[in-house]
Write a protein that binds this DNA or RNA. Structure first.
Lengths: 329, 329
DNA sequence: GTGAAAGCGCTAACAG
DNA sequence: CTGTTAGCGCTTTCAC
């Protein structure tokens, strides 16, 4: 494997000149350039990023922190990040924390040790104190889930407003007894979406019944199934369900079917996220669409700006209610 | 940000000694060690991997090449790879090629330029010539999908045998008119699974009807739906379907439901892969389980061995037929 | 327009 | 047991 010295010798120039050609600097004569390019070709030379990165004190690697790769919610965001990153010559390291602090720390270490230039955190369970501390000396952006107090710039949607619209839609088509399947309120989005649910009900003077609010520990499909089982067994069975994630909603859907009831005739269902599978269920799922891809590209651009030393402002993006079969007979 | 020199000065020792402490070498006095550790703490020092990696001529990064992150098939394998990699202090760069040669080349360049130490390729659409050429100078392992000719070590299952068992199961429960939903035969696994399908039929003297074999361009859900639509419209409607991927099978399931027929009463369905969602459908899907996680850890271990210069042998792992509702009324 | 030389931060061979 | 020093491969000033 040739290095820059051997190329220089082969071309009969100095390493500085080879470096100039490599970096496309225009201060090189056409003639010299050709000589160098020939030598590169002849030796099959590839510049080492290890050398370059050390010299430039950068790794050109971006960390993405997510709790679970398996959660389809992140897919489009990741794609957006990747597109933006690649276009600026950055690569992304996808880090699944599994909500495990040890794993998280392995990845934090990567930026502490300069193997990564910055972090996009999408993990609701991230240790926000450590993240905040890290943000003092490193570039960090929060995406989707965030903590206002941390002072770390974020890009997200208005979760309260989105949940409000979802529930308002259910009310508009005639429902009053609406259950909420929420996750643990330690997560900001859970609190925000619940607030939206409350707001929609209260606005129509429908009393908020705490018994109608169900909490799950995780976002998995089975948890939605489980919550729905409880709902179906309750005394005053709701006629509609709003779940704070599609995965939960799809679980609910399945449980309703197994129970012998129909969606939306007996019970209407609304999800949140518009994951791919929300279109594959029977019936298809009414849900809230977030501009995932855009959120990703914006997060990446914010991060890269921050790495370059720029000041970066938080952004709130638009969302959309997608009405499908699960709320329209 | 302190460097090793400043730590050495602070501790009143040489950089070599600091390096020894960092790397846990036992040739350092307890007293000196303490001095160094104190200095490290005091300066909040973190060793730079950029420097270390250049010096060691390694990046400790492993590339994983997959066509689509969104394909749930890869999730567990990736998890397995990650577990094995992390335990040996490697990190993984998840590379989605989108079956796009340009993207692929960006990632290949990463190993050419020493920013990655090796590749685990799971992309059936990979440019095998380039990969083979790359394998001359770099560590590469094929996982799941492979090319025998390339000479690159692989870990996979016996696709023909697995498909054979799946179809045999359908025959055993009474089916004779069995359709196959396959993908493009440019992929080895497609050819192998079809061979298994043939073998099972021929073994029972059931003639193989080419009209019963349907091809899809991609592995997506919609393609399964589409293929099933054709099958339902055929003159001599099959009573069972074997799809070479769960995604296709789930699409077929949905189409059958929309058509007003029942699974498995009217048509039995078998998939392949045992992705998480195969358990969320109604009815749940009979499918072939591959030891994904193990396949991942083995692939990672093979790759790391290869990076270290060892000789590595290909491995074929066991699979399992998981019988669920879609084939048992 | 090109070259010489310093240095990014680290490890390891060698000497003592 | 510890220090001196060379060098991993590259970029970038500073001279000429």
């Amino acid at each position: 494997m040739a290095n820059i010295q051997q190329v220089a010798k082969q071309a009969g120039v100095s390493v500085a000149t080879v470096s100039r050609v490599l970096n496309g600097q225009s201060t090189v004569t056409a003639k010299t350039r050709i000589k160098v390019e020939d030598a590169i070709k002849k030796l099959n030379y590839e510049p080492s990023l290890l050398g370059r990165n050390l010299r430039n004190s950068e790794s050109r690697i971006l960390l993405i922190l997510i709790p679970k790769i398996a959660n389809p919610f992140y897919l489009d965001i990741i794609n957006g990040i990747e597109t933006a990153a690649l276009s600026q010559n950055y690569n992304i390291l996808l880090c699944e924390t599994d909500s495990n602090p040890e794993r998280e720390n392995i990845y934090f270490d990567l930026v502490r040790k300069k193997m990564a230039d910055g972090i996009i955190s999408m993990d609701p369970a991230v240790n926000i104190d450590t993240l905040t501390e890290l943000a003092e000396r490193h570039a960090i952006i929060q995406c989707s889930e965030y903590s206002e107090d941390s002072g770390i710039p974020y890009v997200t949607i208005d979760n309260e407003e989105a949940a409000y619209r979802a529930v308002k839609h259910l009310i508009k088509i005639g429902h009053e007894n609406i259950a909420l399947i929420n996750t643990d309120e330690k997560y900001l989005y859970a609190r925000q979406r619940k607030a939206g649910y409350r707001k929609a009900l209260e606005e129509q003077n429908i009393p908020v019944n705490e018994d109608n609010i169900y909490y799950t520990q995780h976002l998995g499909f089975e948890y939605g199934q489980h919550a729905m089982k409880k709902i179906l067994g309750s005394k005053n069975r709701p006629t509609a369900v709003f779940a704070v994630s599609d995965l939960l909603a799809i679980g609910a859907l399945k449980e309703i079917n197994s129970y012998g009831l129909s969606v939306p005739e007996d019970i209407a269902v609304v999800g949140f996220d518009k994951i791919d599978f929300s279109n594959m269920t029977n019936p298809t799922l009414t849900t809230i669409a977030q501009p995932m891809h855009r959120m990703g590209t914006i997060a990446a651009e914010m991060l890269i700006d921050k790495i370059k030393g720029a000041d970066v402002e938080s952004i709130i993006l638009d969302h959309e209610l997608v009405i499908r079969e699960s709320t329209s007979g």
